[in-house]
Design a protein around this nucleic acid. Structure first.
Length: 332
RNA sequence: GCCUCUGUAGCUCAGUUGGUAGAGCAGUGGACUGAAAAUCCACGUGUCGUUGGUUCGAUUCCGACCGGAGGCA
C-alpha cells in the first residue's frame, strides 16, 4: 500500500546534508454539508488503507451523531476515526485545540504508515490545519472578555471600534462596527498581549505548509440540487431520531455552550419551549442548513488548490480514487 | 343576497394627504486566525389584482369586475 513512509530525504544547507523526515501526505475531503463527504472519505480510507480525521467543529462532541451527521463506529466499519465524538458536550473547543489535536493524530497515522484522510465542513479548521497555523498556549482570561463585553453594551460598536483603532489601527481598519465578535477579540488580544492582530497572523503562519496535501472538494453542479439534498437529509434526520437528541441538547443548553448553537438543535428550541409548532421548526432547520451550506461554499471557493468534484457525476468516486492514487504515486 | 375588510417584491407586510414605492425574511455575492454549524458586510423595478372614469398626471380618489377573509340574513 502506498501509504506514508517516514522515509529519509534531505537538503543541502551550507554544504551540510541534513537528513529530515519526508513530509507527510494527507488527503482532505471538504465542501458544503450534505454532499456525501463522509462516504467519499470513508471509501478512500478503505481503498488506500487510511484513517479518518474529522474536521468538523460540532462532530467533535460525543452523543450528537444524528444532528451533526457524524459517522458512527458501525458506519465506519472498522476504519479508525479520529476527532469525532470524543468530547463531552459540556466542553468548549476551539480552532487552536483542533489544530493541536489534528496534528497529533496525523503524526501518529503517518508513523503507522497509513494515510490520513481529513474530512469535514469547518473551513476555519481545515484551512488552519493545512496552512499549519500555530496557536500559543496562552489564553486570555475570561474576566478580560467579560469586561469588554459589558463595555460594548454601554458604549456600542462604534466606540469600541475607535478604542481598538487606538491600540491596533490596522485591525480596526478592516472591521465593521457591527462585527462584535471580531472587535472584542482583537481588543482582548492587544490588551492582554500587546500584540496586534496583523503581527499575530504573521507569527502564526509557518514558512512552509506542514503537509503535502491533496484537497478534494465536493459540490453539486446546481445549487438547487444541493438544497434539495439538504431538505431531504433533514427529513431523514427526523426519521433517524433527531428530535430526542435535540431535546437533550435543549435541556442542557446552558452547559452545552458550543454544541447548543449547532444547526439541528437550536431550531427546535422554540418547539420545546412551546412557542412554535414542530413543522415550522423543521422548515427553519432546512433554511438554516441551506444558509450554512452557502457560507461553506464561499469559504472553500476561496481556498486555492481544491480539486472540485461534482456529485452528479457518476464517475465522481472513481475520479477521486484516481486522484489519490496518482497523488500517492507522484514524487513530491 | 347584503355589509365590512382585503389584493403592493419569491413570502409576510409598510407606504404614497394624487407626482409610478420600501422593510423583514428568502435569494445571490463577499468576509473570516482561539465560540466558526458562530459572527459580520454588500446587493431592492415590482403590469402596486383587472378594467373603465375623474385629473395635466392614478398604485393612491370614484365605479364595475375578478380573487381572498370575516360578519349579517
Amino acid at each position: 500500500m502506498p501509504g506514508n513512509r517516514v522515509g529519509v530525504c534531505g537538503e543541502f544547507f551550507k554544504g551540510w546534508y541534513i537528513a529530515m523526515p519526508e513530509r507527510c501526505k494527507i488527503v482532505v475531503v471538504c465542501g458544503p454539508t450534505a454532499t456525501g463527504k463522509s462516504d467519499l472519505a470513508l471509501g478512500l480510507a478503505r481503498a488506500f488503507s487510511g484513517e479518518m480525521v474529522g474536521a468538523d467543529s460540532m462532530q467533535v462532541y460525543a452523543g450528537l451523531t444524528v444532528g451533526t451527521a457524524a459517522l458512527t463506529a458501525e458506519m465506519a466499519g472498522g476504519v479508525p476515526q479520529h476527532l469525532v465524538g470524543f468530547l463531552p458536550p459540556e466542553q468548549v473547543f476551539s480552532v487552536a485545540d483542533y489544530v493541536r489535536a489534528a496534528h497529533e493524530a496525523i503524526k501518529e497515522i503517518c508513523a503507522r504508515g497509513r494515510l490520513p484522510v481529513v474530512c469535514g465542513g469547518t473551513g476555519l479548521y481545515i484551512e488552519s490545519l493545512v496552512k499549519g497555523l500555530s496557536f500559543t498556549e496562552e489564553k486570555v482570561p475570561p474576566e478580560t472578555r467579560a469586561a469588554l463585553a459589558a463595555e460594548w453594551e454601554q458604549a456600542g460598536g462604534a466606540a469600541m471600534l475607535e478604542k481598538l483603532a487606538a491600540l491596533d489601527p490596522e485591525a480596526a481598519g478592516t472591521l465593521h462596527p457591527n462585527d462584535k465578535t471580531r472587535i472584542l477579540r482583537a481588543l482582548e488580544q492587544v490588551q492582554h498581549t500587546g500584540i496586534t492582530k496583523g503581527k499575530r497572523a504573521q507569527r502564526s503562519l509557518p514558512a512552509a505548509p506542514p503537509y503535502d496535501a491533496l484537497c478534494i472538494g465536493l459540490d453539486f453542479q446546481e445549487r438547487a440540487a444541493l438544497y434539495a439534498h439538504i431538505n431531504a437529509r433533514v427529513d431523514d434526520m427526523m426519521d433517524g431520531g433527531l428530535l430526542p437528541e435535540a431535546q437533550r441538547v435543549y435541556e442542557n443548553r446552558d452547559s452545552y455552550k458550543t454544541a447548543a448553537q449547532a444547526i439541528g438543535y437550536k431550531e427546535f428550541f422554540p418547539y420545546f419551549a412551546g412557542e412554535a409548532p414542530l413543522d415550522a421548526c423543521v422548515e427553519k432547520l432546512k433554511q438554516a442548513t441551506r444558509n450554512y451550506a452557502k457560507r461553506q461554499l464561499t469559504w472553500f471557493r476561496r481556498m486555492p488548490d481544491i480539486h472540485w468534484l461534482l456529485r452528479e457525476d457518476a464517475a465522481c468516486e472513481e475520479n477521486a480514487r484516481q486522484m489519490v492514487a496518482s497523488f500517492l504515486a507522484g514524487a513530491e
